[in-house]
Design a protein around this nucleic acid. Structure first.
Lengths: 240, 240
DNA sequence: CAGTGGTCTAGACCACGGA
DNA sequence: CCGTGGTCTAGACCACTGA
């Protein structure tokens, strides 16, 4: 199976919602009707709905139906619960992006970095520091560490364009899971130097796992605080 | 069915992980083994695993097994993708909490608030402003709006203890879904007055839907930037 | 090759909502 | 009451991993 049926259905329904065919607070057709439309079992259809619900597009209500709760976001937003490269995010948001490679060097994971990141202490790693310009304005400083056991090296050229593409297309490595934290911190020297930001930076950390479950990549992104935001969806867990 | 089987299983497995019975990077028993242990079908067992995966506890790897990726968080963390009351969060994190009711008044949803929140313009609402003290330190200013059509009023006493409890236990209303955004902003007058914070505040907005799908509650929480953080989990979406 | 997780089906029963 | 979504089963086939 090239693409799972439920992924296909998810994509179709999502675009219907984003394009307003099903508007905010409308009810979707019933599960049975949709299952029939897409010629799948209800279980499979429900899997597509689960994903839409996860991402904040719909809310289902027992006995009543499934409601669209998606509203277009007014400002540029990064998704906290989606893994996408900077290039992908910028394309989605509709801004231009440019990357400056500030440094690239081999190092060893220190005890404190290991504690913060979850990468194994003492492991060989490649440390990249990059400055991101969105719409020609410097807004993000990224510090990344890649285990050399998984990522032996990253050519400077790739670091400037898209490390992501290099990992996926050349090395065949893909971050398919990551745990993230978000805090607000005082800018450090590097931030002050490059971001023209003196008040506070928004710090997103991300520990990335590859498909074999190895935590191989840790990134600390320092965002200027005024331009971008993040979105997430929350659900009340069933009683536990 | 009082509690769904998969919820039960989720709870058991989660506590095993949190208590280290299955440690970071360990593999869980296979799905078949777990399904047998809990005497459920593999589908049901997988539903429990889905939830664990959603919340960043495990990562499953085709052909290999299911790996634990949970690490205890060093600092207090709010979950961005879980709905919990301040009281619940503080209990989980292990800090004391106290609420000061700064104001409580009826109002009408303005055009700008409607645009920001998603609540209907012109609707009658109750506006609460509360200051949260965690461990006796003022760290959060909450501005909340509740549609009076759903929440006619909130006694001051309930606003000081737990609006959440009042909504659920007295009115039978429950926020079961919310869409959230997170930004960093300059503190406003109220923040400066109560938070002793001059640099930046972390702003979390939340539009809450009740079980009938009505967006009935909007909250803007201004957090001081140095004490708390947020966690989320991300997965690479299947190709779409 | 055997065992793992990933997908999918057809059908069942339940709880809830609204007419 | 009927139609809705929520849960659950038993079984099937596939793709992938590692020995």
């Amino acid at each position: 199976m090239a693409v799972a049926k439920y992924t296909e259905i998810y994509t179709v329904l999502r675009s219907r919602i984003e394009q307003g065919q099903y508007g905010f607070r409308d009810l979707l057709p019933s599960e049975n009707a949709l299952a029939q439309e897409f010629s799948v079992s209800r279980n499979t259809l429900r899997k597509a709905l689960d994903r839409l619900s996860d991402q904040g597009y719909i809310q289902s209500m027992q006995g009543r139906g499934i409601q669209v709760i998606y509203r277009p976001y007014p400002a540029p937003r990064f998704f906290l619960s989606n893994i996408e490269s900077m290039a992908e995010a910028c394309q989605r948001i509709g801004v231009s992006s440019h990357t400056v490679l500030l440094s690239s060097q081999h190092c060893v994971i220190s005890e404190s970095l290991a504690a913060e990141s979850g990468l194994p202490v003492g492991a060989q790693a490649l440390a990249l520091v990059r400055l991101r310009l969105l719409n020609d304005r410097p807004v993000i400083v990224d510090r990344s560490w890649f285990l050399t056991s998984v990522v032996p090296s990253v050519p400077d050229e790739a670091a400037r364009t898209s490390v992501y593409e290099y990992l996926e297309d050349v090395l065949g490595v893909r971050t398919c899971f990551s745990t993230r934290t978000l805090t607000v911190e005082e800018p450090d020297d590097l931030d002050r130097q490059h971001l023209e930001e003196t008040r506070a930076v928004c710090v997103v950390t991300s520990l990335g796992f590859d498909s074999s479950g190895t935590p191989f990549e840790f990134t600390r992104s320092h965002h200027v605080s005024d331009t971008f935001g993040f979105v997430a969806v929350a659900r009340r867990s069933p009683q536990v």
